[in-house]
Amino acid sequence: MNEQQSLLTLIYNDNPTLLAESGLDIRGITIYRRNLLANAQRALSITFPTIFQLLDSDVSEDLVQQFLALCPPSQGDWGQWGEEFSHFIATSQIAYDYPYLPDCAMLDWHIHHALHGVDQLIDHASLQRLGDSEPEHIKVQLNKNVALITSKYPINDIFYAHHHSEDSQRKSAMLRAKETLTSSVNAEQVFMVFRPEFQPKVITLTESESIFVNALQQQKSLADALDAVSHLNDFSFENWLLTAIEQNLIYQFKAEQL
């Protein structure tokens, strides 16, 4: 093992034999271990702000330590680290006590991605496809910052209870979250992350909206997406389109010969 490999291994792992063989000073290694943990903790607390507000600092430090060992960073940009964090939480002891944490982490991850995602605005010219092509030939390319998450927990309320800019809204969201968490029936819901301008938002979708957006995400034609919600009476494409343009959900309409 070369000197760089030895040092990196000793920072990530406690290995007394390797330490003795390397001749490296444990005081220095201890500093690098502390720095790594502090950097990792800071990075995850930025990417997963809800999780780190929900957990006590000693619990979160422990989680970060375990996550570092299991999924060390590999990209040189702490902002890209943490894709597996939600799954990691789901398999850790803390999820038994707080089963909604993995889904909260998933929401944090998508919001973090949307926050740094590509700046996309609707291609207005492409709206013309709606007039000059048949729905079966039209595909809707959603904005890259749109993501759907399914959860039986009130993850949007938990998120806003911690991050809404207005105190009254935070309190209301907290009340709703507590009410839902204590209710005996928790049906699955679909949440949508999107970015109207720079600040991502999350909302709960109705069943028809979620089926429709999911179909578009799967690159089904507009006709097929509309067919998927035809049995539900509450869906209006015209209303959805107006809201979608307002919320910056659509990037482009494309006409294709299928």
């Binding site: 990196l8 291994t9 920072i11 990530y12 060390p72 590999s74 040189g76």
Partner: peptide, 16 residues
């Protein structure tokens, strides 16, 4: 900053 652990490229997260 770069090294291998169990065959995987990892980043040190610090200036080593």
């Amino acid at each position: 900053t770069w090294g291998q652990q169990q065959g995987q490229l990892i980043h040190s997260g610090d200036l080593l």
